[in-house]
């Protein structure tokens, strides 16, 4: 599970403008919440999706690819699950 680990310090440096807590929620709910709320942050701001459904690990980056919003990084959370960072592109 290292494919999307953060690689550069700049990426790690940008704080999320919005954190969506989807812990305990099954896909597609984390994706629905992300799609609903990404437009509430400024362009180029970061939305962090906290999720522990294994499907979210694959599906949030896949949503980013389909919707042309960059997937910035995926961080493992200490208590399980991930913080998946997405940049609003449009």
């Amino acid at each position: 599970m290292s494919r999307w680990q953060a690689t550069t310090r700049e990426e790690a440096a940008q704080e999320p403008a919005l954190t969506i807590d989807a812990l305990g929620k099954k896909c597609p709910i984390p994706i629905i919440l992300l799609a609903e709320q990404i437009r509430s942050v400024p362009l180029n701001a970061i939305v962090a999706v906290l999720a522990d459904d294994p499907a979210a690990y694959t599906d949030v980056p896949a949503w980013c690819r389909l919707k042309s919003h960059p997937h910035v990084a995926t961080y493992e959370l200490p208590k399980g699950g991930w913080a998946i960072h997405v940049r609003r592109n449009y």
Partner: peptide, 24 residues
């Protein structure tokens, strides 16, 4: 291949390995 349809509650390893959407 969605996780909610699998007894393991994990999405299909095929869809995961491809990096494609696993729900729906």
């Amino acid at each position: 291949g969605s996780s909610c349809t699998a007894s393991t509650l994990r999405p299909s390893h095929v869809l995961e390995a491809m990096g494609v959407l696993t729900h729906g």
